[in-house]
Write a protein that binds this DNA or RNA. Structure first.
Length: 935
RNA sequence: GGGCUCAUAGCUCAGUUGGCAGAGCGCACCCCUGAUAAGGGUGAGGUCGCAGGUUCAAGUCCUGCUGGGCCCA
């Protein structure tokens, strides 16, 4: 026994065992940053710009994350997907310049800075606040940029776009000038969601809805005709001072009921709920008959009237709706139709102004609620008051409740027709048109979603009353002079030029005549008279800033066009692709689409690709306060970027994405499987010089397992490149994993191990297999490169033996030549039959007690649907992991032979029937003896 | 409350035009020890969220419901 062992050791040394510098342990945490540095040093991004691009330009535009705090998982997903696009398109032959960007202005940063400043903020000028905000934004950009680079994303990090940069700001104003030119920008009084806390109008996107307890009141409005009263219901008693009308639905039935000896009008369907079960109407009328009735305001000397409105429902209240045009969008629209004032007695700070009754002046609306209720109770107008919980809008940052309040704002009219680029239509119509056709949505339902949102969207309120943003470059007449604000295409473009030179900070400390140094009112046909006649030094610069969405929504111009990265001017869109979370249908997608249609008459994107949101492993919303959010930095530290990227690439991103640290562990195991397969490929190329040692295509054997393998890798290449082309990263991921796990590891590599180890190093068969392994490696490593850039590059350098090599400079491997290698058609059937053979072997091993498959021989009568006469039986034996494979037409079914009585080759461990004692005294097969030069 | 959307094995997901439920992971058992903090083989697992309907036939089409997600009110 001990002799045998010694012999075995001797023979082991004679084997060509795998050897490689590509380690099993990835050590991504240390090695990935090193890769990143290496790419930076070699100028990878720049080099990619300079090389040939046979496929032309692919215009892909990064949507700017908000420059606030650390990246979260949503960013990781988004940035990884974007990087897959950049890298797959690059390797497909496109030039994909990619400028990362950040949204820097806006309330979240300003709010944070104001919180940090505390009371000090009150004494500070806007410009001082802005400087603090800028510092904060810069800090966030730096942090996030570092994290994005740690994710190994390929982008122009040396020159990103920041929405607060002067050249960006100038380009936003250029877009705005175009909209002013189209005459769709107007100033109007309109109720908007108003944050008392931040004293600004809020966009829909800046609201969050929470349940809130309010006092709801049933109030009797006395009819002017003395026939009793109308009962209204409201959850916002503080808006009653602004009540100008009561709305009813024309088709509903309203009844007159006796309450405490007096008559009140309530919708019939709601009467029992409001007045009690025994309520019986004395008289029933249709709503339409009430229209025009007048009533006395309960505590203000004013007469209101009954109007009709479709939005009146019978779900809550009384069917008679308190209407205050200054405090609600629907009320406002009703007011417009009925010619009511947009009356709003509430000031910026949420207190009542001097037009309100004396007892409310200077009081906050929240306190006003109680005062109004007390007043109504005292005067006998209050029928009932109760606590009521309802969903109520809150400021998304401060979480404080907002109110509806009429204010002067700048708007973009989405319903006004204009001409541009030879077409005519409103912004809404144009947006609906390109959504219906022209823009591709992935997944397709994005189209419906976008359409639904466009159908219902109101005019875009552009203005905010804050410090941290891009000023709306409007000028107002000097005190004492009446007139429209100065805001013309020329005046806006003049300020745009100034902002490019000095930045928008200039607005806050520069005299108006200097702000307008590039502008000549006299020569501007659109300028109001006061501006032509007056001195610019006297003009009053406006205090409004833009909705941040207008800034990010102009990025197609401020980045892609301004930097010369857009598609040609005559192309039907500015870029090829935008890729963001599905929430951006309402956000960035739509708010980029509208300005671009206004400015150029065409959409900013040809395709919109969206992904879903992260949820926890039970499918619930992720939230920081629940502590179920994973830290991106921790993930990099625990798993590495390539593992995180591999995880992303395996997701179905159309819908919700479940996330849990466990999934990263699983992704890590898959990664290791892929890595080990690469390692085994590389380790069997030790000493193999492709140029010298390769088997030429024309020498390939169509019936060899190598022919099958070569065909398989060309199929993989086709599958994966097609998947990449359609952004089906998951499909590519799956195909590559299965290829590594099954095609390579379980089938091919297991089968060819014997010849790689035991054949003479220079044997034609071994060289043919190494040639195949080399070809597989070049295809596979390149296909993996977009998903795991570090690992692929590491493998590529190991494959080429060139420390300077970089896989990311290469295109995907052209497999055209490999497809020319003929393959025996029988291989498909052989692989199918193999499953059955393995089952038979397993069965025989159980029955006959054979542990090692190499102690088996397989005999089959035929291979179903295949002519294997030209096949090498050794290939088939190796495919089954057995020592021998034979065709025996006399059999009825596959037969497994127990070979344990036959001698075993001490070198290859096979019992192939040729084993005998050789000149060195060892028991060897013919092949092994030959490999050792023995007889 | 409305728009869009999702629900298939323990987990992650495939399932074209309706036609016998699939893959990978995990798990169990076994092998190998010359890919070794590796590798190979076999196997068990599902009332396709629930309830109706259309059809010879429904995971797939229709309606309703339940429970998630995004957006809006």
């Amino acid at each position: 026994m001990s002799d045998q062992k010694t012999d075995a050791k001797t023979y082991k040394k004679s084997l060509n065992l795998p050897k490689t510098a590509f380690p099993m342990k990835a050590n991504l945490v240390q090695n990935e940053p090193a890769s990143q540095k290496r790419w930076d040093k070699m100028g990878l991004y720049q080099k990619l710009r300079e090389k040939d691009h046979p496929a032309g330009r692919y215009a892909f535009h990064d949507g700017p994350p908000y420059a606030n705090a650390s990246l979260h998982l949503g960013h990781l997903l988004n940035k990884a997907l974007k990087d897959f696009v950049v890298r797959t398109k690059t390797m497909a032959g496109y030039d994909v310049p990619y400028v990362p960007g950040w949204d820097c202005h806006g309330l979240p940063i300003e709010h944070k800075v104001m919180q940090e400043l505390g009371d000090k903020a009150k004494q500070m000028e806007p410009i001082q606040v802005r400087r603090k905000c800028k510092t904060y934004a810069e800090k966030s950009v730096k942090l996030q940029s570092g994290q994005m680079q740690r994710l190994l994303t390929l982008a122009d990090y040396k020159d990103p776009y920041l929405t607060m940069n002067p050249r960006y700001e100038g380009a936003v104003l250029d877009v705005f000038a175009d909209l002013v030119d189209r005459d769709v920008v107007y100033r109007g009084l309109k109720p908007v969601h108003w944050s008392i806390e931040n004293q600004t109008a809020l966009a829909e996107a800046e609201l969050e809805y929470y349940d809130r307890e309010d006092t709801s009141v049933f109030v009797k409005f006395d009819r002017v005709d003395g026939q009793g009263s109308l009962m209204i219901w409201t959850t916002t008693p503080w808006t009653l001072p602004a009540n100008l009308a009561v709305a009813v639905h024309e088709r509903y039935e309203y009844g007159e009921y006796e309450v405490d000896g007096k008559t009140v009008v309530v919708a019939v369907e709601l009467a029992k709920k409001v007045l009690g079960e025994e309520a019986e109407p004395k008289k029933i009328v249709k709503g339409v008959e009430l229209v025009g009735l007048e009533y006395k305001h309960p505590f203000i000397d004013r007469v209101g009237k009954v109007v009709s409105a479709d939005y009146v429902t019978l779900e809550d209240g009384t069917g008679l709706v308190h209407t205050a045009p200054g405090h609600g969008v629907e009320d406002y629209q009703t007011g417009l139709r009925e010619g009511l004032d947009v009356y709003c007695p509430v000031k910026d700070d949420g207190t009542f102004d001097d037009t309100a009754p004396e007892w409310l002046r200077g009081v906050s609306v929240w306190k006003g609620n109680d005062l109004v209720v007390d007043r109504l109770r005292a005067s006998g107008h209050l029928f009932h008051a109760e606590q009521f919980s309802h969903s109520y809008p809150h400021d998304w940052r401060g979480k404080s409740p907002v109110i509806f309040r009429a204010t002067e704002q700048w708007f973009v009219d989405v319903n006004k027709s204009f001409d541009v680029a030879g077409t005519s239509g409103t912004m809404r119509e144009r947006a609906l048109d390109v959504t219906a056709e022209g823009v591709g949505f992935i997944p397709q339902w994005g189209k419906n979603r976008m359409r639904g949102m466009l159908d219902s969207r109101p005019d875009w309120c552009l203005s905010r009353q804050r410090a941290w943003g891009l000023p709306i470059p409007a000028f107002y007449p000097p005190k004492g002079i009446e007139g429209e604000p100065l805001l013309t295409p020329a005046s806006v473009r003049a300020v745009a030029q100034l902002f490019r030179e000095k930045g928008s900070d200039a607005w806050f400390f520069t005299a108006p005549d200097e702000l307008l140094v590039h502008y000549d009112a006299v020569g501007d046909p659109d300028a109001p008279d006061w501006a032509k006649q007056g001195s610019p030094a006297e003009f009053v610069a406006g205090a409004d800033i833009f909705d941040v969405w207008f800034e990010s929504g102009s990025s197609w111009n401020a980045v892609m066009r301004q930097r010369g990265l857009a598609k040609p001017d005559d192309a039907p869109s500015v870029t090829d692709l935008y890729l963001e979370g599905s929430d951006q249908h309402r956000g960035w997608f739509q708010l980029s689409l509208l300005p671009c249609l206004g400015s150029l008459g065409k959409p900013p994107f040809a395709n919109v690709l969206t992904h879903g949101f992260m949820v926890d492993k039970d499918g619930r919303k992720m939230s920081k306060s629940d502590g179920n959010a994973l830290s991106v930095d921790e993930l990099f530290k625990d798993y590495g970027a390539d593992v995180c990227r591999w995880w992303v690439s395996g997701l179905n991103t159309d819908n919700d994405i479940k996330v849990d640290s466990e999934y990263f562990r699983l992704a890590g195991e898959e990664y290791r499987k892929v890595r080990n397969t690469l390692r085994f490929l590389l380790s069997n190329l030790d000493g193999f010089d492709f140029k010298q040692d390769k088997t030429r295509f024309e020498d390939a054997d169509a019936s060899s397992i190598d022919a099958w393998m070569t065909r398989a890798v060309t199929k993989l290449s086709d599958t994966v490149t097609a998947a990449y082309e359609g952004f089906h990263f998951r499909k590519a991921h799956e195909a590559m994993f299965n290829f590594c796990n099954d095609t390579l590891s379980a089938v091919y590599l297991t089968a060819v191990k014997d010849r790689l180890y035991c054949d003479n190093p220079d044997s034609a068969r071994r060289r043919r297999t190494q040639t195949t392994i080399y070809r597989v490696s070049t295809v596979l490593i390149r296909l993996l490169a977009p998903l795991m850039p570090h690992t692929a590059d590491e493998a590529w350098r190991a494959l080429t033996g060139d420390k300077e090599a970089c896989v990311h400079l290469l295109p995907f491997q052209d497999v055209g030549c490999m497809k020319q290698i003929p393959m025996n058609d029988g291989w498909g059937a052989v692989m199918t039959a193999r499953d059955g053979w393995l089952k038979s072997i397993e069965e025989a091993r159980q029955v006959k007690g054979i542990d090692n498959p190499l102690d088996c021989g397989v005999s089959v009568p035929q291979v179903k649907d295949a002519d294997v006469s030209a096949f090498d039986m050794t290939d088939l034996a190796d495919l089954c992991g057995v020592s021998r494979f034979a065709l025996d037409a006399s059999l009825d079914a596959p037969d497994i032979d127990d070979l344990r009585d036959e001698p075993r080759c001490e070198r290859s461990w096979k019992r192939d029937g040729t084993v005998k004692t050789r000149s060195d005294g060892g028991m060897l097969s013919d092949r092994d003896a030959q490999a050792l030069g023995l007889t």
